Amino acid sequence: MGFKLLSKLLVYLTASIMAIASPLAFSVDSSGEYPTVSEIPVGEVRLYQIADGVWSHIATQSFDGAVYPSNGLIVRDGDELLLIDTAWGAKNTAALLAEIEKQIGLPVTRAVSTHFHDDRVGGVDVLRAAGVATYASPSTRRLAEVEGNEIPTHSLEGLSSSGDAVRFGPVELFYPGAAHSTDNLIVYVPSASVLYGGCAIYELSRTSAGNVADADLAEWPTSIERIQQHYPEAQFVIPGHGLPGGLDLLKHTTNVVKAHTNRSVVE
């Protein structure tokens, strides 16, 4: 069995187990497998329904001669939608809004960016022009300005110390501490036991640490421990890039980060 097929099978099995364990909360999309990078042309966006009122959005972007996937989250909030992270750029984010209108038909009224990198804030200006209120932590807003990236308009308070959590509509926002970046936030959907790890969490097929220019490698494993301790009931975990899975993604990420750190020390 090929690795790609095995990865998709694991996603399907995880979703099936969740649907059985929580039949009222989960209505997993039966329309197909989780979209992969090879299936999404740059400039297009796919939506994948995880649970009743919960979707991931998947886009792709060219970077350094390669094409990478990027995940975000959409959560229903009454007759409105909360968006977590842009679709990595203005063109993708405009396509995301169009796809949401086509498939869901509810307005996106608020959006949260989970850290300051372009795959999370690139497209904020498109959201703002569409009347979406954009939010991020003060740290993310400051770092985005320093980096020359787009800056969300509103500040999220109460997320300055490791372990801080605040309720934001249908989700809980959690600051686990520094990891992929010093400002990275985690998003949890309690009604569906869905954990969105953003770039602080890796997919299972990833074996290298990737972009760690703004990471705190020493603190990252401790931050992941905080996530595990705060959300032990999480059933569906979405990484910032690639295929979702279960809580095993947290341990896998820790292993990859520690291996990278150990290699760096040896070198």
Results as ranks from 00 to 15, higher is better:
38 S>W: 12
152 P>T: 03
165 A>Y: 14
51 A>L: 05
188 Y>H: 05
29 D>M: 10
57 H>I: 01
18 M>F: 13
20 I>L: 11
70 S>P: 05
141 R>F: 02
121 V>Y: 04
133 A>P: 10
174 F>M: 13
133 A>C: 07
229 Q>Y: 11
63 F>N: 11
27 S>L: 11
100 I>E: 01
58 I>Y: 06
147 E>M: 14
193 S>M: 13
257 V>W: 01
233 E>I: 09
256 V>G: 01
77 D>E: 10
249 L>E: 00
166 V>F: 07
51 A>S: 10
13 L>R: 12
41 P>V: 11
206 R>Q: 15
99 E>V: 15
33 E>A: 10
132 V>Q: 00
23 P>I: 09
266 V>K: 14
46 R>A: 09
143 L>Y: 08
248 D>Q: 12
259 A>R: 13
216 D>N: 12
236 F>S: 10
181 S>D: 00
107 P>S: 11
11 V>W: 07
111 A>C: 08
251 K>M: 13
48 Y>P: 05
84 I>Q: 00
212 V>H: 08
55 W>T: 00
258 K>S: 13
223 S>V: 06
63 F>G: 15
161 S>G: 13
267 E>Q: 12
116 F>K: 01
267 E>S: 06
156 L>W: 01
108 V>G: 02
243 L>K: 15
40 I>F: 09
48 Y>Q: 12
133 A>E: 14
24 L>H: 14
72 G>I: 01
167 R>Y: 10
13 L>H: 14
47 L>E: 01
113 S>A: 10
219 E>C: 04
167 R>H: 11
247 L>Q: 12
14 T>R: 07
40 I>D: 05
147 E>Y: 15
68 Y>E: 11
207 T>P: 09
239 P>S: 03
219 E>S: 12
252 H>S: 03
108 V>T: 06
42 V>T: 13
64 D>S: 14
5 L>H: 15
48 Y>W: 14
148 G>S: 07
127 L>E: 00
208 S>V: 13
231 Y>P: 01
236 F>C: 09
145 E>P: 05
148 G>Q: 08
108 V>A: 07
33 E>D: 10
26 F>P: 11
114 T>Y: 03
24 L>W: 07
185 L>W: 02
251 K>I: 11
254 T>Y: 13
171 V>I: 10
113 S>E: 03
145 E>C: 08
87 A>S: 05
103 Q>R: 14
70 S>N: 05
20 I>R: 07
238 I>K: 00
152 P>Y: 00
130 A>L: 09
190 P>Y: 06
65 G>F: 06
255 N>R: 12
144 A>R: 09
41 P>S: 13
22 S>H: 09
229 Q>M: 14
147 E>N: 15
163 G>E: 07
255 N>A: 14
98 A>L: 13
75 V>A: 07
188 Y>D: 03
244 P>C: 01
102 K>E: 12
142 R>K: 15
239 P>N: 01
47 L>V: 14
189 V>F: 04
250 L>D: 00
107 P>F: 06
208 S>A: 11
66 A>T: 13
31 S>F: 10
175 Y>M: 03
37 V>T: 14
22 S>L: 11
82 L>Q: 01
211 N>W: 07
19 A>N: 14
99 E>L: 15
155 S>N: 13
76 R>L: 12
96 L>M: 08
203 E>A: 07
127 L>Q: 00
266 V>F: 15
124 V>F: 05
64 D>C: 05
54 V>K: 01
199 C>P: 02
132 V>W: 01
216 D>A: 07
104 I>V: 08
130 A>C: 06
146 V>Q: 14
204 L>F: 09
132 V>K: 03
42 V>F: 08
102 K>Y: 11
84 I>K: 00
184 N>R: 00
9 L>M: 10
191 S>Q: 12
131 G>N: 12
149 N>A: 13
165 A>H: 12
124 V>Q: 04
31 S>N: 10
267 E>W: 09
70 S>H: 04
49 Q>A: 11
159 L>F: 07
74 I>L: 08
79 D>S: 11
37 V>S: 15
161 S>R: 14
164 D>G: 08
52 D>H: 10
61 Q>F: 07
202 Y>F: 13
152 P>A: 04
31 S>C: 07
98 A>K: 11
178 A>N: 09
99 E>S: 14
235 Q>D: 12
241 H>I: 00
21 A>S: 12
254 T>H: 14
51 A>F: 07
58 I>S: 07
17 I>A: 13
42 V>C: 08
170 P>W: 03
36 T>A: 14
228 Q>M: 14
183 D>Y: 05
24 L>C: 07
56 S>G: 15
86 T>I: 07
233 E>S: 13
66 A>M: 15
248 D>K: 08
160 S>E: 14
65 G>A: 10
63 F>E: 12
265 V>R: 12
28 V>S: 12
251 K>V: 12
263 R>Y: 10
261 T>P: 14
163 G>C: 00
140 T>E: 04
235 Q>G: 08
101 E>N: 14
105 G>Q: 11
47 L>G: 03
224 I>A: 01
20 I>W: 11
33 E>Y: 09
236 F>P: 00
149 N>V: 09
3 F>M: 14
133 A>H: 13
150 E>G: 05
76 R>G: 07
201 I>D: 04
73 L>W: 01
76 R>V: 09
107 P>Q: 12
171 V>N: 02
161 S>D: 13
184 N>S: 04
54 V>G: 03
216 D>F: 04
37 V>R: 10
200 A>T: 06
149 N>D: 08
2 G>W: 09
30 S>G: 15
147 E>A: 14
259 A>E: 11
189 V>N: 01
168 F>E: 01
239 P>Q: 03
251 K>A: 12
115 H>F: 02
158 G>Y: 05
233 E>G: 12
2 G>T: 07
73 L>Q: 01
183 D>T: 01
265 V>A: 12
78 G>C: 06
81 L>Q: 00
129 A>T: 11
245 G>A: 05
111 A>G: 08
111 A>N: 06
211 N>S: 11
183 D>S: 01
20 I>A: 12
118 D>E: 08
169 G>F: 06
82 L>A: 04
49 Q>T: 10
29 D>P: 10
14 T>H: 15
185 L>I: 12
28 V>I: 14
134 T>P: 01
54 V>C: 04
252 H>Y: 07
98 A>W: 13
51 A>K: 07
25 A>V: 13
